[in-house]
Design a protein around this nucleic acid. Structure first.
Lengths: 327, 327
DNA sequence: GTCCTTCACTGACGCGCGCAAGCAAGCCGC
DNA sequence: GCGGCTTGCTTGCGCGCGTCAGTGAAGGAC
């Protein structure tokens, strides 16, 4: 709620420095192929500094035909902490390349993604899962040049190693029958598959039966029922979809008089802040979101500049076991 | 990584509909004071639909001198879950008014806020705490028209009721000496003051001594030391800055052989997902971030349109006690 | 003296849009 | 028949910027 307060334009700088706008533009973007004597260059830079000139991104985008805005489509409404952190890491990584991130909640009642893409003038669009072909086309018509993830080979199943790491850890501890705790909230359904798949693979590799899955809500009763199920199936180790679910399993075990980890071992994913201070401290798999976000940012920048994509990191990079007392 | 794929402009629609660009603009923005026969109107709308025309936000912003972008300055790097949720709620609430939110991590190594404001062409800038006067001026020069929060009366201490609610609950349970658990991570320091202040006020009102503060890190040892401090001071009830800290206090109490809530009562803030499944289930204060974000969005929209600000909600609205077994 | 090249710039266009002003046609009152 | 009013448009400007084509002056080659 303040006055418009006329902003300084490159014309102001040009006038003050006694040159034309074009020269100012060349200097400030230090465009190659232009011969500008050091004296002029310094003078322009000095004036720009003094007038606090900042190029108007909107106008620049219009002229250049491309903006510095990346649109992130976030699946549902209330999100887990790790996704939020991914968002922030991505924003930070993009910011280092002069790109701004705008997040769009893809709820049913909200505006469709291509609409938003057009109105903010985004040149790149990202999401957690690949977009349907029709959406991709609509986005392109809306001005998006880079759309990720596509179904590129290195992007297919980034979460699979997480499940493998969980299962391998339990198996190495001698557990022969594993359980898998699925989260109750529907917003996770898109992500559960991969992690569970990783656990199944490890079981198969070790010649063990497939994990016994159970849905665990965030209340003690729900968790206790799941524990009953696992006890009946002689499960001794449980991989949980995430740490919240794991903590619920901990509560369920306690409700049934089981001690962790001797009667039942539990391992989570995420290493949430409370993981070290629950009872017993939770063994978990930490996922290096920083690295994932960074890589995503690199891919976007590469796509925008037309440079080749950076090499893919090894599959399990950034996935780390944090051993505590629950296993 | 796809082709530019020329976008449809309003000129395309105009040509196809056999009218001028201005007419298209008038119809699509259904501008009052223009008399356009229903036939023409329908024809233009139909063509726009058919060509999948979406106005180019960048150009619109340039022409109108104002963008539909709101910039949110987020304090430090890794953020608590509740702040992330606020961000998302705000984005959703703004999206309903056709505004897009871009978040900027105000880290030291990042670009300064006014820079970002200019490059994304934001018309409104928000943050969690009021901006220093100098920053406000720089933002205005960068094109920001609305800057919140200012030190408006209704925005000053939104978190104070949270502390009051915590303390009042413990006092009503008969506790006469309270402790306050401060988080160890420096990123919270800007926010601890208000909540602690609320607790202090309630203590003063009830004629009790000021709360005994202790810093509690997210590890059992740190929490145990704090518990020792409180035990020595005959504290029987602890208000924690947030749920994570509260869970740590729970661990500290257990480490010292105290039972919760009989020996030591604990109350948190946020109602994080694991709150119902820790031992014992955590009593906490839930903060209606949805309402806060909504109100913030309303204030921004009001500021942008020049309409009067909506009435302030009552101070404690949206703050709710969730009673479980830890008190 | 003429021609060519390099240097150091400048003029002007266009990106897609909102909006002020203008303008032809039709109609009305007198 | 004429001035004035409404209706239904159109023409044209400008937002701030990137960028291309051009241009005058200086310097060198012959």
């Amino acid at each position: 709620m303040t006055r418009p307060a006329k902003r300084t334009t490159s014309a102001d700088v040009a006038r003050e420095a006694g040159v034309s706008r074009a020269t100012v533009s060349y200097v400030l973007n230090n465009r190659p192929g232009q011969s500008i004597p050091e004296a002029t260059r310094r003078r322009i830079l000095e004036v720009a500094e003094r007038l606090e000139y900042r190029p108007h991104g909107t106008a620049r985008s219009l002229a250049a035909g491309r903006s510095d805005i990346v649109l992130l489509s976030v699946p549902d409404l209330p999100i887990g902490a790790s996704i939020s952190r991914f968002t922030e890491e991505l924003a930070a990584a993009l910011a280092e390349n002069g790109l701004a991130l705008v997040t769009h909640l893809a709820s049913a009642r909200g505006r469709p993604l291509p609409d938003v893409c057009a109105t903010v003038g985004a040149t790149a669009v990202t999401g957690f899962t690949p977009f349907p072909a029709e959406t991709v086309r609509a986005l392109q018509r809306a001005g998006a040049e880079v759309i990720l993830p596509l179904t590129a080979p290195d992007e297919t199943e980034p979460m699979l190693p997480v499940g493998r790491l969980q299962a391998d850890h339990l198996i190495s501890r001698g557990h022969r029958r594993l359980g898998y705790a699925l989260p109750a909230h529907p917003r996770f359904t898109a992500m559960t598959g991969e992690r569970l798949h990783g656990v199944e693979r490890s079981c198969a590799t070790a010649g063990l039966p497939a994990p016994v899955t159970a849905t665990v809500g965030l209340d003690p009763e729900s968790a206790a029922s799941a524990v009953d199920l696992w006890t009946a199936a002689q499960v001794t180790g449980v991989c949980a979809f995430n740490d919240e679910t794991a903590v619920a399993v901990l509560a369920g075990a306690r409700a049934r008089g089981l001690t962790v980890p001797t009667d039942l071992a539990v391992i989570g994913v995420d290493d949430i802040p409370v993981a070290p201070v629950v009872t017993p401290p939770l063994t978990t798999v930490r996922f290096d979101l920083h690295a994932v976000a960074r890589r995503r940012a690199e891919l976007i920048v590469a796509g925008l500049t037309g440079s080749p994509a950076p090499p893919a990191p090894t599959a399990a990079a950034g996935t780390e076991l944090v051993t505590r007392s629950s296993t």
